[in-house]
């Protein structure tokens, strides 16, 4: 699947896309219920709450209870979305998500807003950098991380339409709009955002826009980079990744997450079993975040287009050896 390369001028928030889609879902599906933990406005469930107050539960600052109440609501036949900051949604509720939700394959959709360094000035405590790994290791769980506003809307609808648990990672900050309202979307299927045969840049979330920008830089040096948007980290699109490895012979992964256990690890797990090729990993290297503006932090931690382009040149060198 090829999506026309975006011109990244407009910026919007993925959490806003989620909030709008949730209200739309509410109109179409009377069994959708929403819970939050005292962050209604921050995670944009206010649209749903205003329109469907009887199907909205503010559980206060008590995420563990919220998660299991959602589990109970799903046992009573509801599609339950819980929304809070990603660090609390994942780490604080991990036992509830594992034993109550995933073990019973319950219809609970966990929405972790404020994922990654783009959370910014709140600092390390609020910058979720581990949740893709924590969630993808759980049986029955699906893990999605949309690359822009429109994809966040589509991912929200896909979460509701797919039985069982699901984790959706969103950003606090506005990020480039790369897709359009009618772009296709299938849970578990990656999207080729740009064709190329010298190296494949495999990215998720905001890093898709950085990878596209890196590809432009590389093109100026005569390097033809393919850019793949992996909006679903689990189940991952093995077929698309193996094809990229076969066609390009070198891979760079890029994620706003710990490099251990996130997207890069998931890609490597696929390729080492099928078609190992040289790989480089762009992400946070075993450290916590810190306060700062979102994009300042991406630069500080080496998560920008320039870093991806350098890694691409390095991995191409390894391929030629």
């Amino acid at each position: 699947m090829i999506v026309k390369e975006g011109t990244a001028v407009e910026k919007k928030r993925t959490r806003e896309g989620f909030g709008k889609a949730l209200a739309e879902l509410g109109r179409d599906h009377p069994n959708v219920v929403v819970l939050t933990a005292d962050v209604k406005g921050s995670v944009n469930v206010n649209y749903f709450a205003d329109e469907f107050p009887s199907r909205f539960f503010n559980c206060g600052v008590a995420e563990q209870n919220m998660c299991d109440v959602a589990a109970g609501l799903s046992l009573a036949g509801k599609i339950a979305f819980i929304a809070t900051y990603g660090c609390f949604a994942s780490t604080r509720c991990l036992d509830m998500i594992r034993t109550t939700v995933c073990y019973a394959n319950l219809n609970v959709k966990i929405v972790g807003s404020h994922g990654g360094l783009l959370t910014g000035p709140d600092g390390a405590s609020h910058q979720a950098l581990e949740e893709l790994g924590l969630m993808r290791v759980l049986p029955n769980m699906k893990v999605m991380i949309p690359c822009d506003f429109w994809e966040a809307k589509r991912a929200t609808r896909a979460a509701a339409a797919t039985p069982g648990p699901c984790y959706l990672r969103l950003s606090r900050e506005s990020i480039p709009v790369l897709t359009s309202e009618d772009s296709p979307f299938t849970l578990g299927k990656g999207v080729v955002m740009r064709q190329g045969g010298d190296v494949a840049l495999v990215a998720c979330g905001v890093m898709v826009s950085e990878a596209l920008s890196a590809a432009e830089m590389l093109a100026k040096d005569g390097i033809d980079a393919r850019v793949i948007n992996i909006h679903t980290v689990k189940p991952i699109d093995s077929e698309l990744l193996i094809k990229a490895a076969a066609d390009c012979g070198a891979i760079v992964t890029a994620e706003e997450h710990q490099v251990h256990c996130g997207l890069g690890s998931a890609v490597a797990e696929v390729l080492v079993r099928s078609l190992p090729v040289p790989m480089e990993f762009i992400g946070v290297n075993d450290s916590f975040g810190m306060s700062g503006e979102g994009y300042e932090l991406l630069t500080k931690y080496g998560l920008r287009d320039t870093n991806i382009a350098s890694a691409a040149k390095k991995v191409i060198e390894r391929k030629r050896r």
């Binding site: 563990q64 299991d68 589990a71 799903s74 009573a76 036992d95």
Partner: peptide, 22 residues
């Protein structure tokens, strides 16, 4: 419900109760 990790059943029960009441 799947239980065994203590301290979770009351939250699950509350969720079911809210769903039935709705």
């Amino acid at each position: 419900a799947s239980t065994g990790s203590l301290g979770q059943g009351l939250s699950i029960s509350l969720g079911i109760a809210l769903g039935l009441r709705m």
